[in-house]
Simulated scan of single mutants.
Amino acid sequence: MKSDPAQIKLSHRSRSAAGLARLVLVVALCLSDRSGFAAETSGVVGLWKLVSYQIEVQATGEKAAIMGERPSGYATFSSDGRVFFMLTGDGRKPAKTDLERAELLNTLVAYTGMYRIEGDRWITKVDVAWNPEWVGTEQVRSFKIEGDQLQVFSPWRVMPNWAEKGTTRSIVTFERTK
């Protein structure tokens, strides 16, 4: 039984067209999914400069500028879903001893991971952090944006940098860079 060359050619074209159609569908689905992400994150995407870092102590209601009056640092939210934080306290000086180097960790918050937005919260799946306990966790933050200001609220928790304060929450303010 001989195959008709025209039939074989047509069959090959049909498979190629079907494969192309599947590829176009997959690409369209991927693009539509990312455009939804972009719409959700458009307000937060960009570079933000740290303005203040306060904590509130749950037991007393006390608020303190735990990182000093002029902390420094940045947060970057990329449009592809990665966030980076590098926040340092005011008045950090080069360490001369191992103890001084260890104490510098108390005035540092640094982590990165993939984030997603859910209403007025973002959730970061941490993959690198100054504190190894955070790696592999999801860090949840509430936020609000007013003009060029981003205000961030952590949940109540014991922060490793100032565990002696007990249960606290961080209230962190950033300004959008221009």
Rank of each mutant, 00 (worst) to 15 (best):
K2A: 12
K2V: 07
K2D: 10
K2P: 13
D4V: 05
P5G: 12
Q7G: 06
K9I: 13
K9C: 06
L10C: 08
L10P: 08
G19E: 09
L20I: 00
R22T: 12
V24K: 15
V26C: 09
V27L: 05
A28G: 09
A28V: 06
L31Y: 04
S35R: 00
G36Q: 01
A38Q: 07
A38F: 03
A38R: 00
A39W: 02
E40T: 04
V45S: 02
G46P: 02
G46R: 02
W48S: 07
W48I: 09
L50N: 04
L50M: 05
V51G: 05
Y53S: 10
Q54V: 09
E56F: 04
V57I: 15
Q58G: 11
G61N: 10
G61F: 09
E62T: 15
A64H: 15
I66P: 11
I66A: 12
G68P: 09
E69T: 07
P71A: 07
S72E: 13
G73T: 00
G73C: 08
A75W: 01
T76Y: 10
T76M: 12
T76D: 00
S79H: 02
F84D: 02
F85K: 08
L87K: 04
G89A: 06
G89T: 03
D90W: 01
K93D: 13
K93T: 13
K93N: 11
T97G: 08
E100N: 08
A102T: 05
E103D: 02
N106P: 00
V109D: 10
T112F: 10
T112H: 09
G113Y: 09
M114H: 14
Y115T: 11
I117W: 05
I117A: 03
E118P: 14
W122P: 06
I123P: 11
D127A: 05
V128Y: 11
A129V: 06
N131G: 05
P132H: 00
W134C: 11
G136Q: 06
Q139Y: 12
S142G: 14
F143N: 06
I145C: 10
E146I: 05
D148F: 08
D148C: 07
Q149Y: 14
Q149R: 15
L150I: 11
Q151W: 11
F153A: 07
P155L: 13
W156G: 10
R157D: 11
V158F: 13
P160M: 02
N161V: 04
N161W: 07
W162M: 15
E164A: 14
K165S: 15
G166S: 12
G166Y: 14
T168E: 07
R169C: 07
S170V: 00
I171K: 12
I171M: 14
I171Y: 10
I171P: 14
V172F: 04
T173M: 08
F174P: 09
E175D: 13
K178F: 07
